[in-house]
Amino acid sequence: MRSISISRRALGAALAIAASLSIFSGPAAQAATALLNVSYDPTRELYKAINPVFIADWKAKTGETIEVQASHAGSGAQARAVIDGLAADVVTLALAADIDAIAAKSGKIAPDWQKKLPNNASPYTSTIVFLVRKGNPKKIKNWDDLAKPGVSVVTPNPKTSGGARWNYLGAWGYALKKFNGDEAKTKEFVKAIYKNAPVLDTGARGSTITFAQRGLGDVLIAWENEAFLAFEEFGKDKFEIVVPTVSVLAEPPVAVVDGNVDAKGTRKAAEAYVNFLYTPAAQAIIAKNYYRPAHPEFAAKADLKRLPKLELFTVDAVFGGWAKAQKTHFADGGVFDDIQKQDAAAR
């Protein structure tokens, strides 16, 4: 009798726990329709501006009220979260390799995603420029100056940050041209730049904070839009933007996460959202936020004028596409690993 009553009590306790655990199982509170846009770090301000316009547009066209939720972190971290089940309807990441990874590892995005939208699925492009302290005390004009001894360079970690990979490729592409395609010399050049880096933050935003807010380093290698934003945010009396002669054409792509929108029944809205990014209204906002719109004709002239003219090369032309660049340079055991190892040995 007693043993039975004990086990019954134990059972009761087990049930109590199970019941209390089941409290957790309620899905997160959802509005009528909500789209989740999972994006990379520097686009916070951009999507904060675009989302209300899209919501109004959607309401006008369909009469439906929609909510757009945003999640921002490093591009790789976001791709990982989507692979692990973050219910993104739309991903707007820093580089194609991260969306490719979602397609390959979760199967939630069709492999040919980049052909579904115009301009390689990039509603805007950007490039990499430098932010220096007022008066440019180290006389930084071009990529060469970053490789000089005594210059302290702030850039994020290419292993974790999408923007950092563009930075790296920008330096590499410049050097490759400078040395007429000599890979060994190019590697030495890029190594010299990373030797000058006292810190590698995990994300592009972290680096901007380190440079602008915490006062570390002589030069920040940054997204063009990020440089302009910091320039505005922290005061034009503190920084200057330096544009190198040559840089990389960054194409941050967008995609609908097929697997998630089909499960949630949000495909129509999600597709409308990514297509909306190419509309005149969104393109104007894009230019206003210092990105280079896919359709410059929709942007305000004054906004476009702020963006400097420079020679831009594509990853396809110089590196043979993102998949290849990723594998050669950033995968474990790739060129960047080698550079870091040699650099550490030298310190």
Binding site: A77, A79, R80, K159, P198, K341, A344
Partner: peptide, 22 residues
């Protein structure tokens, strides 16, 4: 500083590995 080989801690490396899908 999060510099590999110098000021990178093990928990950060777990995150780094995760973000490389490793």
């Amino acid at each position: 500083g999060n510099l590999a080989y110098i000021s990178e801690i093990a928990p950060l490396l777990i995150i780094v590995k995760l973000e490389q899908f490793d």
